[in-house]
């Protein structure tokens, strides 16, 4: 269980990291190493070179830009979790990060690294999708923003080009007064989700739901929005019947086949009850807008 040989390159700026990526075919970015190093120890990954981005101080910033939370590529999960300005703009970040692995792993793992790793059961890709966020990629020809919908393609596959690195991720702030909630089921604390759901709901002055965003992970080959559930909640007053129906509708979104952790039927059952739970919780803290 020892990693294979590799060249170790320290990048001092994101421009240098991007340059090194092009110069060393087969090189990979080393962020927190909490997914990459286990993969190397198992010899599932054998990069020719690692480009360490941990010493790029510019990438260690968490900024609130136009009310949105911009997270640099070297920001640890734990730093984002404990950042009060980020919490104020988008409380879902802290709620979801609490479920990502354990504190010693969050102390080194980065949030952007988790987005790039793109495990289909990972919490933060789902939160990026739920909140309508994007990542910023930097390549030899400059920067581009990639919305979450286009970034996550499949389990552990993103639309990042091989010569690009992700320099930051932006999680939009929540609308004022919006209700929000995150709930997860995993067998043990800190495990990847068997299913997790997040919700953002807004209510108009007439007490009727004006907008609903619901997303889930662990149930498909990538994080997904539950659009049928969203459509069914809008224009309701979230009666018990409305919430029950939302749970039933959520079941359609499970495409994960039976695996070692759960059967499809069990995931459908989990997704239905988690969906009802987050909608109720979100409704409880929602204020009229």
């Amino acid at each position: 269980m020892k990693p294979p040989l590799f060249d170790y390159l320290v990048a001092r700026s994101s421009e240098e990291a991007v340059k090194l990526l092009s110069e060393y075919p087969g090189a990979m970015i080393l962020a927190g190493g909490q997914s990459l190093i286990p993969a190397m120890n198992f010899r599932l990954a054998a990069p020719a070179a690692l480009i360490d981005i941990n010493r790029i101080s510019d990438l260690r910033r968490i900024d609130i830009v136009d009310g949105n939370v911009r997270v640099g590529a070297a920001v640890r999960h734990r730093d984002l979790e404990q950042n009060d300005a980020a919490f104020a703009a988008n409380p879902l970040l802290r709620a979801a990060l609490y479920h990502v692995a354990h504190v010693p792993i969050r102390n080194r793992g980065t949030t952007v690294g988790s987005l790039c790793h793109a495990d289909a059961a990972a919490e933060m890709p789902m939160v990026l999708l739920l909140t309508g966020g994007w990542v910023t990629a930097e390549g030899p020809s400059g920067q581009r923003d990639i919305p979450a919908e286009e970034f996550f393609e499949f389990h552990m596959t993103t639309s990042r080009e091989a010569d690009e690195m992700i320099v930051s991720a932006t999680f939009p702030g929540l609308p004022t007064g919006a209700g929000h909630a995150f709930a997860e089921f995993a067998r043990r604390k800190g495990d990847y989700a068997i299913a997790a759901v997040g919700a953002i709901v807004e209510r108009g002055a007439d007490g009727v739901i004006s907008s609903a965003r619901i997303a889930a992970c662990g149930i498909s080959s990538r994080p997904v929005r539950l659009s049928e559930v969203e459509a069914a909640l809008v224009d309701t007053k979230l009666s018990d019947d409305d919430i029950h129906r939302a749970g039933e509708l959520a079941k359609q979104s499970v495409t994960a086949p039976d695996d070692a952790h759960a059967t499809t039927a069990y995931r459908q059952h989990l997704l239905a009850s988690l969906t009802r739970r987050v909608v109720r919780q979100a409704a409880g803290i929602m204020k009229e807008s």
Binding site: Y8, G33, Q34, I37, N41, V103, R108
Partner: peptide
């Protein structure tokens, strides 16, 4: 606290 097996 950190995992020394997941750090070079």
């Amino acid at each position: 606290a950190a995992r020394s097996c997941l750090t070079f």
